[in-house]
Design a protein around this nucleic acid. Structure first.
Ligand SMILES: [Mn+2]
Ligand SMILES: [Mn+2]
Ligand SMILES: [Mn+2]
Ligand SMILES: [Mn+2]
Lengths: 223, 223
DNA sequence: ATTTTTTTTTAGATCAGTCTAAATCTTATT
DNA sequence: AATAAGATTTAGACTGATCTAAAAAAAAAT
């Protein structure tokens, strides 16, 4: 409940994102790599976070979030994504330019500010990358999703999110005409390397590698 | 030119504001008092700021800003005031609630963000307290001003700014109906204590102490 | 011109956050 | 099961920011 430092918030968020991938424990090195620091620094921080009961931490055996840590992480993510919407919707930033800015703005922690911002933006449910925005209570409204790389030839869906928010990736998507909300049909899948030929909005044909399609989330069209 | 920490930015801003009052040197204690820290901490920070050539500092003899420090302070103030406008104009905060929020937001230093925000807000020239917003180059558009306590009986002016942004003061102004842009006529000035009777917008009579009127800036109506 | 008071600086601690290098624990391999 | 490899933690150091208490300098008062 007490105020956290930006560094503590960044670590919590990183742990949350790593846990999101499935495992119920994350390792020191995974955190270090995601947060671009060194294992020794992570060990240090884990002690502090455990002290504050934000994580479960057993030396040498990885960490997970406590209920309180989980809730806190969702608050941070909420702020991050609301600011991302603000930057894109109001200040006309491109979705590949907002990462570092939202990374800073997320640490301004004022419940009133967040509520007002949310209201001002019209209570958005998803950020510019298609990721869900937790509500005040940490609830996520999630759409049923499937990764594009797992969509079979002939199937049609809508692009709802990306798994990778690096500028390089997002710029690439812009270039080939892939965007959130686009209709996508998988015309062909190459068995050898998993690359696909797509039809975007029934108009544009695009070839993408599996590395790309594995980072795109799709909602399948019913039927 | 290099990136400053939030603390360094706060000190620079404090020095700027103290110099604004007139003197060409400010003392360690004045800074400590404004920034709510101790003289020893200020001494420490002054060494660092001098090292970075943001201030002129001669031990025991006060500080002033270098050209670079002055420019930097204006950039910080620009960010602070733009965010204040955003909070009031867009998020509907009251002018007495924005201080601490802007105090944090001002440290997000991205020239592009600031430019976009400025544009989005319609290039405002003054913040909610009536203080001028420096442009990208640090230029201030200042209105000719005089403190209300120095306006003589019979004279009429418009309230353009406040010298004190504490919630207590601003709430008081709200209560008695004084706001930026209001027309004000000084009906009477008590010689004994400098208190005044005012007529706001030609309608409402208000008595204010000199402590209050010394914190209100007025633009005199020509003629 | 001394002495006293006030202001400012320094000395020495502490805390958060980070790093490198060394020690230690876990896991995989022989 | 012993050893090698890999991951993690600890030890020790550094920076930035802050504080209290003591020392030093400047300003004010006698
Ligand atoms: Mn961050
Ligand atoms: Mn996002
Ligand atoms: Mn500030
Ligand atoms: Mn202001």
């Amino acid at each position: 409940m007490k105020k956290l430092t930006p560094a503590e918030e960044n670590y919590l968020k990183a742990i949350y994102h790593l846990l999101e991938e499935g495992p119920e424990k994350v390792s020191t090195n995974e955190i270090a790599s995601l947060i671009q620091s060194k294992a020794a620094s992570v060990s240090d921080m884990l002690k502090r976070l455990a002290e504050k009961e934000l994580i479960y931490y057993k030396k040498y055996h990885g960490v997970s979030l406590t209920e309180s840590g989980h809730k806190t992480a969702l608050h941070i993510i909420r702020r991050n994504r609301l600011w991302e919407v603000f930057l894109v919707e109001k200040l006309k930033f491109n979705w590949d330019e907002i990462d570092t800015l939202a990374e800073e703005l997320e640490h301004v922690n004022s419940p009133l500010l967040v509520r007002r911002l949310d209201e001002y933006l019209g209570f958005p449910k998803f950020d510019p990358h298609g990721d869900p925005i937790p509500d005040e209570f940490g609830e996520l409204s999630s759409k049923p999703r499937i990764v594009l790389s797992e969509v079979r030839s002939g199937q049609v869906g809508k692009i709802v999110a990306v798994n990778n928010s690096s500028a390089a990736f997002l710029k690439y998507l812009d270039k080939v005409g892939i965007y959130i909300g686009a209709k996508v049909e998988v015309l062909d899948t190459i068995e050898f390397d998993g690359s696909q030929e797509l039809l975007i909005d029934g108009q544009k044909k695009v070839f993408v590698s599996k590395e790309v399609s594995a980072n795109i989330q799709v909602m399948l069209h019913p039927g």
